[in-house]
Design a protein around this nucleic acid. Sequence first.
DNA 1: AACATTTGACCTGG
DNA 2: CCAGGTCAAATGTT
Length: 331
Amino acid sequence: MASTEMEMGVVGGGVNSSGGGSCGGLVVTELSHIKELVRQLEVHLGGSPDLCKHLASQIFSLTERSIGLITSSNLDGARRQKRPAGDAGLASPLSATPTSDVTDGPFQSTKKKRKVMEQRRQRVSSAGGENPVEDGHSWRKYGQKEILGAKHPRGYYRCTHRHSQGCPATKQVQRTDEDPTVYDVIYHGGHTCVHRAAAGQAQATAPPEHRPDAHGHLRSLGAGLTVKTETEEGLPAAAPLCLSASTPPVSGGGCPCPCLAPSTPENWGVSPASSNSNHAASYLPFEDAEWRGHAGLQEVVSASAPPPPAVDSLDDLLLLVDIDDIASLFD
DNA sequence: AACATTTGACCTGG
DNA sequence: CCAGGTCAAATGTT
């Protein structure tokens, strides 16, 4: 049984970072390039599909490179600054989890599947509502565990499409000790699943906040959400956004993110007992292997914020991805 | 019937 | 040996 499960994702897929060092300038250059490409893409939207595809793939590879640079930089920083594990209950997951070298080859042997994948941590507030945040993915709970030093058990979830598509994404959800309405969500691995059919259906039937098109997603991303992103050292960082252009959207401008199955009320990273259908919001943690560079980032997501600006154009999208913000990481 | 959750047992790394 | 992570049978839900 366990042996039949494919653990092969696109983990560690070809982000070639050029060593650590100060890469801020390089990243800015790369991102500026991306920005320009996106502008071109916008111009050609509705025009030649081939050209759009070409631009998309260029954006994709540039993004990969940039993330590689950011990743290597962040990891360096994280390694250098050792974290005191004193922080009651919360300190453990990221710092104490002995994630193996993320820069190394992803697989050594099938036995060593544990902890091979990178992880990202988010703090999710459910302020008032029952559910923290909808993340647009289908999760299936496969375990729960009392964690030493923590008041609340940790839930273990994996992508619903794990078996059907071999999607390696998993997440762990745990209430924080300080505030029961706040959850720590740790994601392992990115989604490799694509749920085209369901996504298309969802586009027609699902409520706007669940529509798998980029704009809808970005709207929902903002809908009632503030995303404060910071590194472990407390540096400001770019908001996590789904920019992957790896999967060409369904014609007419779908979401570039894979695995956008219509979310179910059970998607919630909380005990199903407390989950119901009136989720407060949606957000996109990270969708692709390319976005795994945020290993050192901790995102703080609050579900109680006022309605956000709509993202109606790629320009709006670009506004959300402020290159300067990213650049400031390296200042 | 199919799918999801619960939960105790098992496995693994430190 | 212990804590964390995963498995899988039992159970619940739709």
